[in-house]
Nucleic acid binder design. Structure first.
Lengths: 208, 208
DNA sequence: CAATAAAACCGACAACCTGTCGGTTTCTCT
DNA sequence: AGAGAAACCGACAGGTTGTCGGTTTTATTG
């Protein structure tokens, strides 16, 4: 463990470049040559830091995932914020105003990035579902929610929002409104809360 | 249009072989060489019938998709069957007792088949959602459902069930029961029907 | 201030992959 | 029988990933 500073800097450089290229052109359409040429290093150097191209992808995903998860945790663990806002905030943290660039998110949803998308989704969902489930249980105790299956409720809301809002950018304003209103209605029903409870906190997030 | 019989037979042979290999080893891990060697044809023959490897994948998916969709339609259009059974039957047609082999379905959900999975899911969802939405509207008129957003309700139920029941095979019986019960509860809430309405028709499908 | 060992780096290379293309065989219709 | 179209062949170009022996840089140590 001698000069690890230099090594980690190079590793970060590779990840930065790969993330940008994957986002711009897709995982399959980005060759390892593209990466090393963009940086100006040799093949051997790349494979000194990573064992395979897929290893690079996994590392890129891990980085993004950690950023998003810590963003979501910051919200959910802040007892200052009202429960409803913590819930809606963490649900939307992974979809709308995600910590990483929007540009990346748009590209992630292209068909050519199916693997990237699926891997990210799997990790995010499995990470965020227990957190959301805790919030729902807290709501149950407070009497504002009535959910007999908090974990599955969280899963359903997260999976749906993550997929359905993929193409929010390419929709007309009316369609968008319709879809968001429907989501609010269904989320309320799933969690067993009074109609309109989630209206205000969710809209606040979407409007910004 | 001379000897199209021969041509279509070869095409079917390629699709059959490709489907099997994709399912067994994944799309990325199956080379066009694997396909032509398994059949015993030359490279040129393969590319005479298909324009690219992805073209083969799309054709394989189309075939599976058509089978499943026609199965689902058979159920939904049969006015003899009660509405509730048509609804649950078509929801589950794409997940549980799908027309194609279960073996294929298991493989489809492996990470190495992300592209295949995503493409299939997209087509199936967009095909089945309007059908389910119609059934929900019919239920609204009959007074057993109360859904202000039939299309989005259908979307939510289909997307969730398609993803969440991916790994039903690798779960303990208790987990499985819990997950199915939760799904029934949430589907009832989303569609706005009395508790227990979907219990019997859904369980009937899962138990077989 | 060498000496040295580890980490970082290099680039040629093997093995593979996809898609192309000119030429050959086989079929079908006249 | 002959002619045209479809089916088929296999060598080939151009690109890809991952390996490996050898070189340079860096940090530590006697």
């Amino acid at each position: 463990m001698r000069h690890e500073k230099r090594g980690d800097a190079r590793k970060k450089e590779i990840l930065d470049t790969a993330e940008q290229l994957f986002a711009a052109n897709g995982f399959d359409n980005t060759s390892t040559n593209d990466i090393i040429n963009a940086i100006g290093i040799a093949r051997g150097t790349l494979y000194h830091h990573f064992t395979s191209k897929e290893d690079i992808l996994d590392s890129v995903i891990d980085r993004i995932n950690n950023t998003m998860m810590s963003d979501a945790k910051k919200i959910t663990e802040d007892r200052q914020i009202p429960l409803l806002d913590r819930l809606t905030g963490s649900i939307c943290a992974l979809n709308v105003d995600s910590g990483i660039g929007e540009e990346v998110m748009i590209q992630v949803h292209k068909p050519q990035n199916a693997l990237l998308h699926q891997k990210m989704q799997e990790k995010l969902i499995s990470g965020i579902v227990p957190i959301i489930a805790d919030l729902i249980e807290e709501g149950n105790r407070e009497g504002i929610f009535h959910s007999p299956y908090p974990k599955e409720a969280a899963e359903m809301v997260m999976i749906y929002s993550n997929i359905a809002f993929d193409d929010l950018a390419v929709m007309s304003p009316e369609e968008k409104t319709q879809k968001i209103q429907a989501f609010i209605c269904h989320a309320e029903r799933i969690m067993g809360t009074a109609e309109g409870t989630l209206q205000e906190p969710i809209m606040r997030i979407f409007s910004k």
